[in-house]
Design a protein around this nucleic acid. Sequence first.
DNA 1: GTCTATACCGTGATAGAC
DNA 2: GTCTATCACGGTATAGAC
Lengths: 217, 217
Amino acid sequence: MTKADTISKRNRILNIAEELFAQRGYDGVTLRQIASGANVDVALASYHFGKKLDLFNAVFERRAELLNASRLSALRLAQDNANKKGPSVEQVIEAFLRPLEIAQESGDEGWKNYLALIAYVNNSPHWGALMMSKIFDELVNEFIAALRKALPNAKHEDIYWCYHNLSGALTLTLAQTGRIDKLSKGACRSSDFRAAYDVMIPFAAAGFRKVCKARKD
Amino acid sequence: MTKADTISKRNRILNIAEELFAQRGYDGVTLRQIASGANVDVALASYHFGKKLDLFNAVFERRAELLNASRLSALRLAQDNANKKGPSVEQVIEAFLRPLEIAQESGDEGWKNYLALIAYVNNSPHWGALMMSKIFDELVNEFIAALRKALPNAKHEDIYWCYHNLSGALTLTLAQTGRIDKLSKGACRSSDFRAAYDVMIPFAAAGFRKVCKARKD
DNA sequence: GTCTATACCGTGATAGAC
DNA sequence: GTCTATCACGGTATAGAC
């Protein structure tokens, strides 16, 4: 057994766990399904990761740093290119969303599964608040600050509610449920993140502007 | 055992199942938890509803008709009060969202749980497309048609993508994850549907207008 | 250190006795 | 309508192979 094989088994577990958890949620997946999907023994997941919940967390955290770094650098780039008033709402939202196209462009299915997993967690009353905050709050607060700067007249809570709307639209996109495909009879495809963001950016930007313009109390 | 007791046990099962499924998802709940929560024997759920999946469907369908009727009548009212150009985007979205405040105003926790269950289903790659379409497509198509009428220059797909954004924002709201509470340090509350819609309606309306104005190909 | 085989024991859904 | 029994499947610990 070479080192390469070892890494590959560990990663195969993470990959298949990512896919299955994204599809069926934490409770909908068994360690045996994961093991069989990765072509390894049932006990190997426990050996590498400990309890089922630890594996779930490992999957959730694996790509988090990379994703956060990618979004943050997009934001920094927009800030560097802006004048001292800072980037526009559109530019901030663009920096928030476009890095997620990595899933589509890299052709790496793993990223798509990971993003669907985020959607599962973010929309879950059970996991949502805690897991999301732990991993994403620092980054999200950066974006909130940038949005506040772009909308200086915004009422304090309105920024959060608007962000919530954006986050919801994004979450449903990442979940890739196929619903829009059915509803639109094929005119739109769940898998087409780029098309989704092409609409979501002007949609959300207009929403932010409308709600946050001159409503300060 | 009187008839009233029977009805009440059946309903207790539905109520607790609704709450637990909404919280933890289909696989995160056992029939034993449901039975113990309803203070009935383990087998009673099977007696009344058949398999676990049948119970899940029964819960999902129980309030659907009432909800659909309530939203449709809100739409019809807006249409009756409008001139022949039909209701505005805001009015259509208002009719889509406001009936959901029933959960808050009636004080009926059951409705809140039911709406959270819809959020779970709508965001799930596994259940999403099929279950949602079966129950809600007819109604949603009415709203899509009204939106298209209010935005006559809209590109065909854009209406669907904009609706998708609205649906996502709504879904995250219904899920009531508590995330916005944490993020805003208490300034916004997940449980406050009215506040959510007060922002969501102008937010989404502005988004629709921006994206769907003069973009027809 | 990496991995497999296996066994444990609790819990699951559900059928059938009452 | 209710209670019990069944039996497959769940997570996980352990022993030892490589």
